[in-house]
Design a protein around this nucleic acid. Structure first.
Lengths: 204, 204
DNA sequence: GCCACCTTCTGACATTTGTCATGCCGAGCG
DNA sequence: CGCTCGGCATGACAAATGTCAGAAGGTGGC
């Protein structure tokens, strides 16, 4: 018989984390060795308990799941990372895979499935939710250049062009040109709608 | 001994709902008679099973928790509603209480606490998470008039004034006046930043 | 070496906004 | 009854934004 799978569970919602822990504990071969409620805490717990698999929520205070995964990759190369998320945005999946995450699933899966997926990931295989994968493929690659994306991001909170130009160390004209071309590429009427679209598709 | 509390559980995340169901089922006096993954489904389930307490997620596809609560209030006056949420925005709490919701808690509570709160609500009492209540009081009432809020909401997706005016059946000048005064009241530089602020404070 | 493309800029122009003054109507209040 | 406030509108002006053309330097491919 194979050894038990040692798990780290990180989610900022107590209720969810506790419930999840209870359900996963029902599986004979899974044992939860640590829980965390934030990104930094997850890292500390991982260092302290050396889990085989880290199950991370994508959105946590402090540092999101992908950032934690990146750090874990170098600090604990033997620890596989599985990300669980509520809102499956295509861009996140891409970032996560780039960070060396082995599994990516929405919270709509059942606990049974999750347990299976944890075993899959622990065995060194990858698992990505088919629906999220399809979304990611359908939404395709960002048509934006690096600068366009950067400027669009700075425009995200509704700041005026002057402020964006300042923060990006560009001239106002250049900023307007970038925003204009970004909006055109995304088929948006103005930069604000463009920001919304880019957000939806995970391009910012 | 009092009769068991019959529960309806509604959350679009399978994983969470299942886990929650498992945990609450451990309590002797709580019995889950129905589960739902969307607003309309929750309503249908409630009609079919006549639960004593409905535990609703705030954000669900179809109709959000508050809308479901409003409908339940008239259709099943004996069913108490308890709302559970991830992102505790002050405005939601106010809307929820106005809709006759008896309990409002963040998902950060433990399952134990949740079970207690369910009993509290079932007994006809109210329960609001102290921290959320404090936030709601601190953020105060919306300074926006009904129209201002309405117009601001239409501006949320970055639509140009012309489109907003069209959808609100107002003149463009009027729309600009409303947006302008809303932005001033919120201390924002422009309507887009105003939308963001109003969102954060739960005023839209 | 040429071509394509990104980055960055300038300047000019049309359009969209934000802002302000002002007016009218209806509801609520002292 | 008059006052105030919110809803709705105009018109006019200033500021911000979007659009276009053009131009120069850099990188990378073929």
């Amino acid at each position: 018989m194979t050894a038990d799978v040692r798990l780290l569970l990180a989610d900022d919602e107590h209720l969810i984390r506790g419930a999840l822990a209870a359900l996963l504990a029902l599986e004979d071969d899974l044992v939860i060795v640590a829980e965390a409620a934030s990104g930094p805490e997850a890292l500390a717990m991982a260092r302290a308990h050396q889990p085989d698999v880290a199950v991370l929520d994508l959105q946590m205070p402090g540092a999101d799941g992908v950032k934690v995964a990146t750090s874990l990759r170098t600090e604990l190369p033997d620890c596989q990372v599985l990300i669980v998320t509520s809102h499956g945005r295509p861009g996140h999946l891409k970032r996560a895979l780039a960070a060396g995450v082995r599994g990516f699933v929405p919270k709509t899966v059942s606990a049974q499935r999750l347990a299976e997926i944890i075993r899959t990931v622990h065995a060194g295989n990858r698992y990505v939710d088919p629906e999220l994968a399809a979304d990611a493929i359908a939404s395709g690659d960002s048509p934006l250049t690096a600068r366009e994306a950067e400027v669009l991001e700075l425009a995200a909170d509704g700041a005026p062009v002057a402020e964006i130009a300042d923060r990006a160390a560009l001239s106002q004209g250049t900023v307007r040109n970038y925003l204009s071309s970004a909006a055109t590429k995304l088929g948006a009427e103005n930069r604000h709608a463009a920001v919304r679209l880019a957000r939806e598709r995970g391009w910012v």
